[in-house]
Write a protein that binds this DNA or RNA. Structure first.
Lengths: 121, 121
DNA sequence: TAACTGTATTAATCAAGATAGTACACTTAG
DNA sequence: CTAAGTGTACTATCTTGATTAATACAGTTA
């Protein structure tokens, strides 16, 4: 379910955070479903429990999971997550548009590219 | 012209690379214009010359500048850069679209958002 | 020749990420 | 209640990439 890419320059805990985010947002992990425990996942991936813990803390901070001491980590109610994801997406889209405009590519050109693809940028 | 943000977690040389990329792509630095020398910029920013060198090497590798030993570093012909920038932009746009579709947001919705903004995602 | 340029190399330092080991608190099944 | 599973916290150590430091070499130009 979770894979670590050692060729990736990003820290392991970030990779884990992103992987779980995707699993949750795509519905592979259902609402209130339990995530692997800190220790078991660490064992499975042959990495330190502290690294998993760091990833889980970040996922909780971002609102993707909630933690119950002594029980485990669980997936948050999905609607809240969609809101989070939408915000992220909007930010990315706005960034791209801004970046394009800095080099003289208008928003309309981007829309045209989205509609027609290919070399239309 | 160049600023280093120590609160930024990214390495200094990456910040410098990105800053110069923008200055070049936005036309603030003209074609064939000379960049500050390795030593002078290092002095100005109070950082090590090696760090500037690393940034300039990367900029050359990416095709943004060309280097003449004994003379300095100069801005590359702009059309080539636009091609580079367009490729980058396309990649980013495609990424966003893919990411959106993973959570059930269609390309059409993104286009609508671009056209109308606000909460239309 | 002197004073600029870029380039290369080696060693030392620093900080973030990751590991290792241990301890403590809570929950649940038995 | 006890045992085994959870999450949490803390400290010490290791590793790696980024950065600094110091120096040397090579090309360009006034």
């Amino acid at each position: 379910m979770i894979v670590v890419d050692y060729k990736d320059t990003r820290p392991i805990y970030e990779q884990i955070v992103e992987r779980f985010q995707n699993l949750i947002l795509t519905g592979v992990l259902k609402v209130d479903e339990q995530l692997p425990s800190v220790r078991s996942l660490a064992m499975e991936l042959s990495i330190n429990p502290n690294t998993i813990q760091k990833a889980y803390s970040e996922l909780e901070r971002r609102g993707f999971i909630y933690t119950v001491k002594g029980k485990g980590n669980f997936v948050t109610y999905k609607e809240e997550l969609m809101e989070y994801k939408k915000k992220e997406l909007k930010k990315k889209i706005d960034d791209v548009v801004e970046e394009a405009e800095e080099v003289g590519i208008a928003k309309a050109t981007i829309i045209y590219y989205l509609e027609n693809g290919g070399d239309s940028l």
